[in-house]
Amino acid sequence: MAEQVALSRTQVCGILREELFQGDAFHQSDTHIFIIMGASGDLAKKKIYPTIWWLFRDGLLPENTFIVGYARSRLTVADIRKQSEPFFKATPEEKLKLEDFFARNSYVAGQYDDAASYQRLNSHMNALHLGSQANRLFYLALPPTVYEAVTKNIHESCMSQIGWNRIIVEKPFGRDLQSSDRLSNHISSLFREDQIYRIDHYLGKEMVQNLMVLRFANRIFGPIWNRDNIACVILTFKEPFGTEGRGGYFDEFGIIRDVMQNHLLQMLCLVAMEKPASTNSDDVRDEKVKVLKCISEVQANNVVLGQYVGNPDGEGEATKGYLDDPTVPRGSTTATFAAVVLYVENERWDGVPFILRCGKALNERKAEVRLQFHDVAGDIFHQQCKRNELVIRVQPNEAVYTKMMTKKPGMFFNPEESELDLTYGNRYKNVKLPDAYERLILDVFCGSQMHFVRSDELREAWRIFTPLLHQIELEKPKPIPYIYGSRGPTEADELMKRVGFQYEGTYKWVNP
């Protein structure tokens, strides 16, 4: 592979701008107003304001973009700056750019259920340069409990009458099928589907988006991507930290609602779906819905739930269990780990287990898709061969690698495990991989909904998990304890083995 010439960040961002501006969906010269509902909250200060700053800094926003914060707290732009700027990672050389960014910011205080507050917000936006005809993007960085009041008031008082209007809704989209349907029906009564952007930030990850290209742009994968060759698929999300004093919020939802029903299920769809007619948003989402419709409700015998306990040999936070978090209700049975087996009941995947695993306070930070292939028929190497695996590593250190057998150097035919490896950090030294939120917010500006969740996708996802969630809430089974920093409950490994996964433990990928 030829040595790549190092590029400056300015040059890299210039390439990104060229890609972005050559499309006809990006209205570079139009006025846009980006409204952050819930501007005083954690999500706004840690993710949304920093993301908008990065896009502005790199010249990736339309030229005439204004940012308006809205929340109940009586704040000023200076207050917003004070709480969000520490997350910007701005350099001293960017000081003038930073001043320009905050000059485009404003803030309006108001209630979430008060019509007069929204009329005041609308008047404020109209007073901005060309504000009355601007395109408006409303980001709901809010708890779902206020979605209905907020969307109703936005629709009645704050819509642009000339430009387009788009609304970005953060997960969780309800707690179960019934609450999700209620919320979807409410929002759909106010906005068209092409105006609604239900954001799952995992769909903005580079390697998640790469799944489609790997599958449908490489001839070698087509013939082997089926039940005849693939023994099982494992989708993993692991965090090495616990709730760390923020367990009160987590306890309301648990690990299945927080990660599995959305992030992991979306990745499953991209692995299992048929080739779409095109890369058009609805063509892709149509195929994802077909996959979900082929999955039956989760069966309790295919589920393992766990909850982390303190590690007596650990240090600091590792010595504390979930129930030691003062914000967690006493005696909570909320799971911090889950392993679930699903089956896609169609011709391509009949009988292939899709194993979804996620948890907190585990032994490493990792998100990946792992396809394990069947054993080689007619073994001539005296059971020395391990199964081939194709691994798409989402985070950290984005990579695609194939675990395969090669001859060990020497005189004899002794096979050993090795890999074919594409590590993004080595291959793409001159490429700026956008943060997931950067990519998705740019998608909203461009009107691309491919990486957002459609209402029928959402409904099918909740259909699969709601009976299990209701059973857990009714019966309150005690989750299996696992030690902070471990791989999780051993019962999860036993479940995976029972459905056909072979864990060798003899080879570990190392970032080159």
Rank of each mutant, 00 (worst) to 15 (best):
F26V: 12
N210S: 08
F34S: 02
R227P: 00
T65D: 01
D113F: 05
F138Q: 00
N185L: 08
T76L: 04
D228H: 15
E170C: 08
P62K: 06
P172N: 06
I35K: 01
H27V: 10
K47F: 12
K47S: 14
I256C: 08
A2W: 03
Y118S: 01
L96M: 13
D251I: 00
G41T: 13
I199M: 07
L183D: 07
S123G: 13
I48H: 00
L96T: 14
D42W: 14
T145H: 14
F56N: 01
V150L: 06
D100E: 01
F221E: 01
N226V: 03
S106Y: 12
T10Q: 12
R136M: 06
T31A: 13
I52T: 05
G222P: 06
F26N: 05
E244L: 12
F88P: 00
D181P: 04
A115K: 12
D79E: 11
F216A: 06
L214V: 15
R136N: 04
F241D: 14
D30E: 12
H129C: 13
Q28K: 06
N229G: 09
T151G: 08
E18D: 14
P144V: 14
R257W: 03
A134T: 12
E94W: 04
W225I: 05
N135Y: 02
Q28A: 06
Q22G: 10
E85K: 04
V169C: 14
M37T: 02
N229Q: 12
G247F: 10
D251F: 00
A127L: 04
V213T: 15
F21K: 12
I168E: 00
I33V: 07
H186P: 11
H32Y: 15
G248S: 13
L214C: 15
D228Q: 09
P144H: 14
L7Y: 08
G163C: 04
N135D: 03
S84R: 02
E148C: 08
P92E: 11
L43N: 03
E206V: 08
S29V: 07
D24C: 08
K82L: 08
E19A: 10
L183H: 10
F237L: 04
I199Y: 02
S184F: 06
H186D: 03
P92I: 11
R219N: 13
K171G: 08
F88R: 01
L140Y: 04
A6N: 13
E18L: 08
L16M: 07
G69T: 06
S117T: 05
I167T: 03
E3T: 07
A116T: 07
Y139A: 05
F66N: 04
G245W: 06
E206M: 10
P92G: 11
M159V: 05
F26Y: 14
A116L: 12
I162N: 12
M159W: 08
I196C: 03
K97S: 04
F253P: 13
M207K: 03
F21C: 10
L75E: 08
L55H: 04
F87Y: 06
F191L: 05
L98G: 00
V146I: 09
W164N: 04
G163H: 02
N165D: 04
L190K: 03
S106R: 06
L16E: 05
I256L: 14
F173L: 04
A141R: 02
G110F: 01
Y147T: 15
K45Y: 08
R57F: 01
S179H: 10
G204T: 15
S179A: 08
Q119C: 14
M159D: 04
R81F: 05
G247W: 14
K89Q: 12
I230A: 02
V12N: 05
R9F: 05
P240N: 11
G222N: 11
R120C: 10
W225Q: 00
N153L: 08
S189K: 06
T91S: 10
I154V: 13
D114W: 05
A217M: 06
L203W: 15
L130S: 11
G59R: 05
M212Q: 04
R57S: 03
L98F: 04
N185S: 14
I35V: 08
L60N: 04
L177H: 07
F138Y: 09
T65Q: 01
I220H: 03
W53D: 00
C158H: 00
D194Q: 05
L130Y: 09
Y112A: 04
N165M: 06
L190Q: 09
F191S: 00
S106Q: 05
Q133L: 05
Y197K: 00
H186R: 07
S123W: 10
I224L: 11
E244A: 11
K238I: 15
G248R: 15
A127I: 09
D100G: 05
W164M: 04
A231M: 08
A78Y: 08
F191Q: 00
A39V: 03
D114V: 10
T151A: 08
Y70G: 01
Y112F: 04
V12L: 09
G14Q: 11
Y112W: 05
T243L: 13
A2Y: 11
K89M: 05
C158T: 11
Y147Q: 15
A25L: 05
I234F: 11
I234S: 15
K95I: 07
F253W: 13
L75M: 05
S132G: 04
V213W: 06
V77Y: 04
D100H: 06
G248L: 12
F191D: 02
M125R: 03
E148V: 11
H32F: 10
L60W: 02
V169M: 08
K45D: 01
F34K: 01
Y70F: 14
D79M: 05
I255M: 06
K82N: 09
N135T: 03
G59M: 03
T151M: 03
Q11Y: 08
M207C: 13
V233K: 02
R257S: 12
A149F: 09
V208F: 13
H32K: 04
K89L: 10
D194K: 10
R17V: 12
N226C: 10
I168T: 02
R81V: 05
R227F: 04
G131L: 03
G254L: 01
H32D: 03
C232A: 10
A78M: 12
I256Q: 01
R192Q: 05
M212D: 05
L20C: 15
G14H: 08
K47D: 06
W225L: 02
E239W: 08
A217T: 06
T91L: 12
Q11P: 09
D58Y: 09
H124S: 04
D251W: 01
D42A: 11
N229F: 04
L140G: 00
Y70T: 05
G163P: 01
F253G: 06
F253K: 14
G69A: 06
T10L: 07
I187Q: 03
C158I: 02
E193V: 03
I67L: 04
I255W: 01
C13W: 04
D42E: 14
N126D: 10
L235M: 07
A103E: 10
H155L: 03
C232W: 02
A141D: 08
Q209S: 14
F88M: 08
I80R: 02
F221Q: 02
N226D: 08
H186C: 11
K171A: 11
N165L: 04
N165Y: 02
A116V: 06
A39I: 03
I67Y: 03
R175L: 08
G14P: 07
N165R: 03
H124N: 06
V150G: 04
Y139H: 10
A2E: 08
S40A: 11
N229R: 00
S132E: 12
K45H: 10
E170F: 03
V146S: 07
Q4G: 11
